[in-house]
Simulated assay, not measured.
Amino acid sequence: MCAAVLRLPPLPTIRDLIRLYRLKALKQLSQNFLLDERITDRIVKSAGDISGHYVCEVGPGPGGITRSIIKKHPRKLIVIEKDERFLPTLELLQEASQGFVDMHIEINDVRDFNFENALSEVPKEDWLGSPPPINIIGNLPFSISTNLVIRWLKAISQKQSAWAFGRSKMTLTFQKEVAERMKAPVTHKQRCRLSVMCQLWCNVKHKFTIPGRAFIPKPKVDVGVVTLEPLKEPFVDLPFEMVEKVLRHFFNMRQKISLKSALRLFPEELREELGEKLFILADVDSNARPFEITTEEYARLCYAYKLLCDDYPQIVDFDFRIRRKDIIGSY
């Protein structure tokens, strides 16, 4: 049964507030305002039933998505905004929702934000049980979106930050091409390192696409709305840096056979022996190209690499890029 929609008192439109406070989107912060309430409502609907939940909104700007969140009556809403110019418009929403939604405004860079402290009152759930009543929702700046999701995937792998409480869900916007990459299945032309990183730890869904013309100013690309729900049983339980290292090497040579990419994981004197051994241990075809390897097969390759690291400790810190620079610098 759907929760009742909270009706806010009459407020100026987001467009009017932008004019009133003379707010301009800053290019250096990758700001684009979303003014269509039907679209912001649809973004929040994609997050599922958030009534009574603890919601963290990233980059609320003038408060378009914020209004749609408030209407769904979360128990607590924390908006994290780096640009203090938006404080007056957010305070207006805070005042309007007083007595209905416990709204907190944090003027901060989300990359420095401590989710565990902010959500300390939320009861922790067993990872294998139901997700906690936590939702992260945001119209992310293009300039930090990929970096941010990688940070959060690492936190998921370590069950830290917002994921110290369980499998907290995310509903986020990305450039359409990035959204497609995150979801891209095996053999898809968009499949890349980001695809596998996301799919190793999360169930990824590209919910819908927002045309660029819906934003002010209009970006050069369309925007994809993506949900990420951490898996009960991730494909890998290994150090995040190790997994990232393996995938980075494989996708550095996306169109080559995977053996060529994998060889660079090892010092030259061990390269031929361990390169072949890696694929034998993982039971993966070494002639497959990186985008032709399944997520499960990548998990096996990561575990095989871990076994080789245990047997050959000298390869753990090996980085062919550093060795290559040393060789070039010697000439």
Rank of each mutant, 00 (worst) to 15 (best):
V178I: 14
L172N: 08
I107P: 01
P132N: 12
N108P: 00
V122T: 08
T146L: 09
N108Q: 09
E116I: 04
A164S: 15
P133K: 03
V178A: 11
E106P: 00
Q160R: 15
N139P: 03
A179T: 12
N147W: 01
R151N: 15
Q158P: 00
P123W: 00
I156V: 13
K169Y: 05
L153I: 14
F165V: 11
I137A: 07
S157M: 10
R151E: 15
L172S: 08
S130K: 14
Q160Y: 05
W127D: 05
V122S: 12
Q158D: 04
A179C: 12
E95Q: 11
E106I: 02
L153T: 14
S161M: 05
F113K: 11
L119P: 04
I136A: 03
N108K: 14
N135K: 12
S161P: 00
A118V: 07
V149E: 08
L93H: 10
S157Y: 11
Q175S: 04
Q160I: 06
S120W: 02
N147G: 15
N117C: 03
G129I: 00
M170H: 10
R151H: 13
V178C: 06
Q98K: 14
I105C: 07
A164M: 06
K124I: 10
R181I: 10
N139Q: 11
V178N: 02
P141Q: 12
I150K: 07
N147T: 15
N135H: 14
I150H: 04
I150V: 15
S161H: 13
L148I: 13
L128E: 15
K124E: 09
I105L: 03
Q160A: 10
A164D: 05
E95H: 08
R181F: 13
G99T: 08
E177W: 04
V110N: 11
H104S: 09
N108C: 14
P132W: 07
M170R: 13
Q94F: 01
T171L: 07
N147K: 10
K169L: 10
S168T: 12
S161T: 07
S161F: 00
A162E: 11
I105S: 03
I134A: 05
I134R: 09
L93S: 09
Q94P: 00
E116W: 02
G99E: 00
M103G: 01
E180S: 04
E106T: 05
L153H: 06
P132D: 12
S143W: 00
F113H: 15
S120G: 00
S97R: 08
D126S: 06
T171W: 13
G129H: 01
T171R: 09
S120P: 00
E177P: 00
P132E: 11
I107V: 15
A155E: 13
I150Y: 06
Q158I: 11
E180H: 03
Q175M: 05
I156F: 12
F174L: 07
A96C: 11
V122A: 04
N139V: 02
P123N: 07
L148W: 07
G166D: 05
W152H: 13
I137F: 00
R151Y: 08
E180F: 01
P133A: 02
I144L: 14
S97G: 04
D112F: 01
I136R: 14
N135F: 02
A118Q: 09
P131C: 08
A118R: 09
E95D: 02
M103W: 07
G166P: 01
L128R: 13
E180L: 05
